[in-house]
Design a binder for these strands. Structure first.
Lengths: 129, 129
DNA sequence: TCGCGATACATGCATATGCATCTACTTATC
DNA sequence: GATAAGTAGATGCATATGCATGTATCGCGA
């Protein structure tokens, strides 16, 4: 708990200093970027990100307001929507990754050998089962 | 990041279902409980908990409003205060620990051997240096 | 095909957080 | 011993979060 809080503070700080949005935005942009056609339904984003439904709903509204995603109605399900990453969204994701990756390198990679990092990942994955 | 978010959600959930306050309160109550005389200055709590100054200020206000701590003026430094845990605060900390410990057991201890847990702690500590 | 429970997402309200700044006091400087 | 710089903590404002519930649509069973 303490380690991740410390790390999160460091990363958020790095992003802020670079004039970029908070890390939460990255998670969503990343999922969209990875997704086929750069589009996902909110429900699928929710499952991938561990975001609560109401938080995701509002985060998507913010992303749309900033022009990083577009939101379309689902033609097959009147209740559903599709979030589609825009080219600006792709650019922001990339800019964020540049900073985020640097953060990880500086605050994590420099403290652990590759082998240790792998073992850490394995242990954490065991907990998440 | 994901593992701790998942864990935090689980723990917060357990606390909520038991009618207890959020985990953040525990951190402060724990520090006070450990501290000599059950009292600390906000500044010292801040250092121990990684809480931002303004967040701690308001968290202490909430704790005081709920009667879990008392706040006294520092006789030696007119700017300073002392937070003092009350008997109700002690009781709440204990009740929270009962639930929290159960959460840890269920969500962490059951997934790792003692040896693995030790190694995990060591690796995380390496990062926090 | 009607009606009802389930599903997808949004939102009003209370509370928590971040940021900047404020107030009150203390300590060092001259 | 007056004044400026520093320190401890609080707070107004904007924004984010949690909770409960709302709205719209879907799909199933009679």
């Amino acid at each position: 708990m303490r380690t991740q809080k410390r790390l999160l503070d460091l990363v958020e700080n790095d992003l802020k200093r670079a004039g970029l949005p908070p890390l939460g935005w990255y998670d969503v942009l990343l999922e969209l970027w990875r997704a086929d056609g750069g589009r996902l339904r909110p429900l699928d984003i929710e499952k991938r990100t561990l975001l609560a439904q109401y938080n995701l709903s509002r985060l998507l509204a913010r992303l749309e307001r900033e022009g990083l995603i577009g939101v379309e109605a689902d033609p097959e399900d009147g209740r559903g929507k599709w979030a589609v990453i825009t080219s600006e969204g792709l650019a922001v994701r990339e800019a964020m990754w540049a900073v985020y990756a640097g953060s990880i390198r500086e605050h994590v990679q420099s403290k652990l050998s590759e082998d240790e990092a792998t073992r850490l990942g394995t242990l954490l994955a065991r907990i998440s089962t």
